[in-house]
Simulated assay, not measured.
Amino acid sequence: MTCLLLPPHPASVSTARRWAAPLLESLPADVRHPVVLVVPELVTNAVAADEAAGAADDIEVELVVDPPHGHVVLAVTDASDRPLPPSPAHVPGEEDGGRGLLLLDILADDHGWTPRPCGGKCVWALFRCTPVQRRTTTPQRLECADAA
């Protein structure tokens, strides 16, 4: 598990993405790329939630990369007690935002949120992977499980 504390500021979005990318380098692209896309989306939502709540608390980004058990977990905290809204079914092309939860629905195998005892919430995403059995003696490689 690796954690990063960030101020609730828009510049934290790119910082979080740059922080997460090297932590995921050992994973295959079909696992790594979705996680790298979701990290800035969840941090963007946390920054907006903290601004709306008038909070100056740091945003905590937690990343658990666990290839032996076949998953990656991303968790991002914010100061808002408001529940995670439902994902939109469609976002008009001319809109500047509103796609984060839609991307989360599409890219993560599971996601949700939990209230924090000290206030605020934690939004999490799970990316499942399964080991692929090789016919040779080479080490196993992780690939995403089929969505079907």
Rank of each mutant, 00 (worst) to 15 (best):
L6R: 01
T114G: 11
R116T: 13
E41A: 03
A52T: 03
V38Y: 00
T15H: 04
T138K: 14
G54S: 08
L23H: 14
V76K: 12
D66N: 15
G54R: 03
S14L: 11
A89R: 14
L84M: 15
L142D: 01
P28D: 05
L126A: 10
P22A: 00
A21W: 02
T138W: 13
C129T: 15
A49G: 04
V132E: 15
L142W: 13
D109Y: 14
A21Y: 01
L101K: 09
A29R: 14
T114E: 15
S87T: 08
R99V: 11
D57L: 06
E143L: 14
L103W: 11
H9S: 07
V43S: 02
L37V: 05
H90Q: 10
W19E: 03
H9C: 06
T136V: 00
T77S: 12
M1E: 13
L84I: 00
A49Y: 04
T44R: 12
V65K: 05
R82E: 15
I59N: 11
S12T: 06
L103Q: 14
D66Y: 08
A56G: 10
H9F: 01
H69D: 14
C129R: 13
E143M: 11
D81L: 00
P83N: 10
G100I: 02
P40R: 02
W19A: 08
L101E: 10
P115W: 10
R18L: 12
D146G: 14
S26I: 01
H9K: 09
A52M: 05
L37C: 09
V61C: 02
L103N: 15
P117A: 13
H69L: 06
R128P: 07
L27I: 02
V31W: 06
A75D: 03
L102V: 09
V123Q: 10
H33G: 05
D146S: 12
R99Y: 13
V13T: 04
V91P: 02
V36M: 05
A21R: 10
V39T: 08
W113H: 12
V38K: 02
I106N: 09
H111K: 10
L107Y: 06
F127Y: 13
P85L: 04
E51Q: 13
L23K: 13
A147Q: 08
V73R: 14
V39E: 03
D58M: 07
C129E: 12
D78I: 01
E60G: 09
A16Q: 01
T138R: 15
V73C: 11
Q140G: 06
G120D: 13
A56M: 02
T137I: 07
G93I: 02
P7W: 00
R141G: 08
A29D: 07
L63P: 02
V73P: 08
T130H: 11
V47T: 06
K121W: 05
Q140F: 12
A75P: 03
C118N: 13
E62F: 01
R135M: 14
R17T: 14
